[in-house]
């Protein structure tokens, strides 16, 4: 039983990692007023470039940096097309995602001659796992928290880092002002284009780390479509969190937990596993509808009150 619990806890953290990176990448652009639907494509490109650069340089660090660079390049491309070329952001992002799917498979084939995976073709490296001293010896908690990939720990560090960036730095203040009222920001001399480009570059770097986790930690090779929707899951975690990096991380872990439960159930009953996998999203959708209905009702109620008061006032004035 204890074994089961520790395995479960360990898996939750492991499966949450890429989702956390995706959610944080979306949080940065969301705060700048842009929905980052391309995070899936960013991660996929990063996963491939991480493998290639680590295989070429035989350096884990350069591999991870290569992945981050890939994310940044995708971010720069979107900024250019959207902010300079004035194209529709969502269409751009959809195009980027589709391009990433086809492009990475094509690149894979050109480099290795294989269409599915780099496994046994490229000698890519994996990010090391870390045994945390002292903590690893705590019963129950130790095996859950210790022994993860460096990138998993970095994900939680990133949460704090993004929070600090958004709420404690000058860039963060400007970024939030651009997201909420670009005209106000513009009127005091803040360049909306520059801030949004910066946001996309940061998002690219963070998504790049998520991609690196997929191909250099989760497994140690690249395979086609390996991100498998984790970018979109992160996107919805960020949407529920409404721009808070901490809440986004918590919801990412909740989605990671659902993934874990589904994985376990898959061993016994595949049908139920898919049902469980679906649950967090069903809850999200229902939650969003309920929240929005509640808000609409409240607004309506407030208006009704204002109307009633105004009409009463008018009647009183008429009498005098």
């Amino acid at each position: 039983m204890i074994n089961f619990i520790t395995n479960f806890g360990f898996s939750v953290l492991r499966l949450s990692t890429p989702i956390i990176y995706a959610a944080l990448a979306c949080t940065v652009t969301k705060k700048a007023g842009l929905l980052n639907m391309s995070v899936e494509g960013m991660m996929l490109c990063a996963a491939l470039l991480g493998v290639i650069s680590s295989a070429l340089t035989q350096s884990v660090l350069l591999g991870v940096l290569g992945a981050m660079l890939a994310g940044c390049l995708v971010g720069a491309l979107i900024s250019y097309v959207n902010l300079v070329g004035k194209s529709e952001l969502y269409l751009t992002c959809i195009a980027i995602n589709l391009m990433a799917t086809g492009g990475t498979t094509f690149a894979l084939y050109m480099i290795t001659g294989a269409k599915g995976t780099t496994f046994s073709y490229l000698a890519s490296l994996a990010v090391p796992t870390i045994q945390i001293p002292i903590i690893k010896d705590i019963p129950l908690l130790g095996p859950i928290l210790s022994g993860h990939s460096l990138l998993t720990y970095l994900a939680f560090l990133c949460t704090a880092l993004i929070w600090w960036l958004l709420f404690k730095t000058r860039l963060g203040l400007r970024l939030r002002s651009v997201g909420e009222n670009p005209h106000a920001a513009e009127s005091v001399g803040i360049s909306v284009t520059r801030i949004r480009t910066t946001a996309y570059l940061i998002a690219g770097a963070v998504a790049g780390l998520g991609g690196a986790f997929m191909s250099m930690s989760y497994v140690a090779w690249f395979s086609r479509d390996m991100v498998a929707g984790r970018g979109f899951i992160g996107l919805s975690a960020n949407n529920i969190a409404n721009g808070s990096p901490v809440v986004a991380t918590i919801f990412s872990m909740l989605f990671g937990m659902a993934d874990t439960v589904a994985n376990i159930l898959q061993l016994t009953d595949a049908g139920i596993a898919y049902f469980v996998k679906m649950l967090p999203y069903v809850i999200t959708i229902v939650g969003m509808v309920v929240m929005s209905v509640f808000q609409i009702r409240r607004r309506k109620h407030m208006k009704q009150k204002a109307v009633a008061a105004a009409i009463q006032e008018a009647a009183a004035e008429k009498q005098t």
Binding site: K168, G172, R176, N181, A184, V188, I190
Partner: peptide, 25 residues
């Protein structure tokens, strides 16, 4: 008004000419 609702009055006033300490606002 050209204001950012979720920011404080102080933050709105200094936006664009923010005082900084190292890289921090």
């Amino acid at each position: 008004f050209m204001l950012v609702p979720s920011l404080s009055i102080a933050e709105n006033i200094v936006l664009g000419i923010e005082p900084t300490k190292a890289v921090m606002f």
